[in-house]
């Protein structure tokens, strides 16, 4: 849900900032509109982007839960675990890059490319940048795999 909120927030930051700074409208109206924007996952996303966003949310939540479980079980977090955490974070960030309307330039990655004058690069990508969403999913699956593997390792004193 947190990831989904970030995604919806990124996509609608112009509306949300204008809305909440506007002097007109009641707070209730603004809150209802903000919540209604969650429905945009059905209208403002490609099927693949919607899918990767939901999967990224689930996988990132699982990663956090596994990480908390592991750190509660093992007091001293090995350095390698920090890497796993970063891998998970990288997965989430990558997932965020892959969202939006790839075909219309409204998602984060394409906006960045436009910023650097390299929007044409999108035409070279078969999924027009949505590859980043898939990369995020793969990174998070790998993170969860490493975490589960760590958890299943017997607690021993290393020599």
């Amino acid at each position: 849900m947190g990831i989904l909120t970030i995604v919806i927030g990124i996509q609608n930051w112009q509306l949300l900032s204008s809305l909440w700074s506007a002097e007109f409208g009641t707070s209730w109206q603004k809150l209802v509109l903000t919540l209604t924007l969650y429905v945009s996952i059905g209208t403002n996303f490609t099927l693949l982007a919607g899918f990767t966003t939901v999967i990224t949310s689930v996988l990132f939540g699982t990663s956090v839960a596994l990480l908390i479980y592991y750190t509660k079980t093992v007091q001293n977090m090995p350095t390698r675990m920090t890497g796993i955490g970063i891998s998970g974070f990288g997965g989430m960030i990558s997932g965020l890059f892959g969202i939006g309307c790839a075909a219309c330039g409204t998602f984060l990655f394409s906006q960045m490319l436009f910023l650097f004058g390299a929007g044409w690069l999108l035409t070279w990508l078969p999924l027009k940048g949505e590859e980043f969403g898939l990369l995020g999913v793969i990174l998070l699956i790998y993170t969860n795999y490493l975490l589960v593997k760590k958890i299943r390792e017997p607690l021993i004193c290393p020599t």
């Binding site: 509306l15 924007l37 429905v39 209208t43 403002n44 309307c101 409204t106």
Partner: peptide
């Protein structure tokens, strides 16, 4: 920064932007 990009203009200069293909309910709100 991309399409569709819309601006909803009301009386007295009240304006709000609309980024992307928002659901009908959001537009009506």
């Amino acid at each position: 920064r991309g399409t569709p990009w819309s601006i909803v203009i009301g009386p007295d200069g009240k304006t709000l932007p609309l980024n992307g293909a928002q659901p009908q309910a959001a537009i009506e709100q």
